[in-house]
């Protein structure tokens, strides 16, 4: 890509949590906030992948808008006044996490990702020490058909990081989401066992971007599955430079 042909992005100013900040018009509120040291919690977001606004944890309040908007999908506009940490937002975020925990069977104590789990860390960070909504306890499958990896739907939060990395970075698009609402689930190809997939390259990127113990390496015992996500921003940047 020839950088000189790009128009200089328009620089705008806005306010986040009372702080005056400047931004490019093509930046999301999340990017701007993080550049300015303002932390907004996220689950489905991952540097190097396109945002989808799936988890709703990064919801923010914008003055004059009654709706809460996801910071990862909302672009900076001139004169915006943004709140990222109001009591209302804190309450919503905790509730969202509780709903995630209640939706499937997240049994931390025996999970291979115990101690390395982004969902668990987020619960600690947001002070979600218990779940007040009723657990659903769905009966979910474990897909162990792949030679090296395993998909445990019980631990999946449908963040779709795996779907995006498989499509955009690996280029295989083996994974996708099937079904609606609580019946949504990650599938491989045309809903085949992972091990039968013709398109999967067994690259393992999906495993390492997965925030929980849903996608793991086989043979790991409780608490042993630490993920490595550092590769992704590098990979993305290298490709941008070389194309």
């Amino acid at each position: 890509m020839n950088m000189s042909t790009l128009a200089t992005p328009q620089v705008i100013t806005l306010q986040i949590d009372g702080q005056d900040v400047s931004a490019r018009a093509d930046e999301s509120i999340l990017d701007v906030a993080r550049e300015n040291g303002i932390d907004i919690p996220t689950m489905c977001h991952l540097d190097g992948l396109d945002p989808v606004g799936a988890c709703r944890l990064c919801l923010i309040e914008i003055e004059g808008t009654p709706k809460l908007l996801p910071a990862c999908m909302t672009y900076a506009e001139e004169g915006m006044r943004v709140l990222t940490d109001s009591p209302r937002l804190q309450k919503y975020r905790r509730t969202i996490l509780e709903l995630i925990f209640a939706e499937r069977n997240h049994v931390c104590s025996v999970c291979v990702s115990n101690g390395h789990c982004e969902l668990q860390n987020m619960a600690v960070k947001l002070g979600v020490s218990h779940v007040t909504v009723a657990y659903r306890y769905p009966k979910m499958e474990v897909d162990s058909s792949h030679d090296r990896f395993r998909l445990d739907h019980n631990r999946c939060i449908l963040c779709t990081r795996c779907v995006r990395v498989c499509d955009a970075v690996e280029g295989a698009h083996t994974k996708d989401v099937m079904g609606r609402g609580v019946l949504s689930a990650i599938i491989h190809d045309l809903n085949e066992p992972w091990g039968d997939s013709d398109t999967c390259t067994s690259c393992g990127k999906c495993v390492h971007v997965c925030p929980t113990g849903a996608l793991v390496e086989k043979g790991t015992a409780s608490s042993e599955m630490a993920k490595r996500t550092q590769f992704l921003p590098y990979l993305t940047r290298m490709r941008e430079h070389h194309s």
Binding site: G219, A221, S222
Partner: peptide
């Protein structure tokens, strides 16, 4: 039933 065998030691320890 249905759980990966590698989880068995930590599940049964409970």
């Amino acid at each position: 039933e249905g759980r990966p065998l590698t989880e068995m030691p930590s599940i049964t320890a409970r």
